[in-house]
């Protein structure tokens, strides 16, 4: 564990708390992509199956359990509790286009051709693109509540912080995980546009609005 990773994980934790805070205070899931949230549940469930057969640390197990339960809870909030505030008509990204290539990639790139390792690989590839339905929705509506953009910024910061973590591990621990690194760089790159608007508008006190 190094500081980059710790701050990355804390940022991930903060992003989920911000998401829950947004839903609870506005009593609405408006502006959130159900598809992205459903993809995150898929990511966590397929990656953290090792909770049942591989113990890393208490920290690791607690975080994994939190990510699975909180992401499932968000789906419940979107589909049941605050269902009337969810608008599927603007959540139109075709997730088949993400799932198919991720299945294919995980069959080609994995560390062992076993069910668990292929699922792990799949979850890494899927996580790298899971935010796309959300960013696509943002692009479509052209604006977002500030709290939603803070959620996305924390999520993007988590991914960005994992990059120096990998550089650190490469030099200090002689460890490198090519699948995670490649997917992680792609994932972080997807946030570049968002971060540009976030820094130049939201953090200057303006509304998050995309040029028409």
């Amino acid at each position: 564990m190094n500081l980059f990773r710790l701050f990355g994980d804390m940022s991930h934790l903060a992003s989920i708390l911000l998401l829950l805070y947004k839903i609870q205070t506005t009593r609405s899931v408006r502006g959130l992509s159900f598809k992205t949230q459903a993809l995150y549940v898929t990511v966590f469930v397929t990656r953290y199956l090792d909770l049942f057969y591989d113990y890393v640390s208490l920290y690791n197990s607690v975080m994994k359990t939190f990510f699975i339960t909180s992401s499932c809870y968000v789906l419940y909030l979107m589909k049941k509790k605050y269902r009337p505030t969810n608008d599927p008509s603007i959540d139109t990204f075709r997730v088949e286009y993400l799932l198919g290539p991720c299945v294919l990639l995980s069959l080609i790139f994995n560390y062992r051709f076993t069910f668990a390792e292929i699922l792990w690989s799949f979850s890494i590839f899927l996580e790298s693109v899971a935010i796309l339905p959300q960013l696509f929705m943002l692009q479509r509506t052209g604006e977002a509540e500030a709290i939603t953009t803070h959620y996305l910024a924390a999520l993007g910061a988590y991914r960005a912080l994992y990059i120096p973590n990998w550089i650190y591990r490469y030099w200090m621990e002689d460890q490198v995980d090519p699948i995670a690194v490649t997917a992680g760089i792609v994932q972080t790159a997807l946030y570049v546009d968002f971060f540009y608007v976030y820094f130049t508008k939201v953090l200057q006190g303006q509304r998050f609005e995309l040029p028409a």
């Binding site: 994992y162 973590n165 490198v176």
Partner: peptide, 10 residues
Amino acid sequence: AKETGLHDEL
């Protein structure tokens, strides 16, 4: 550098 696949990250 050695490849991991150890999956100790989240």
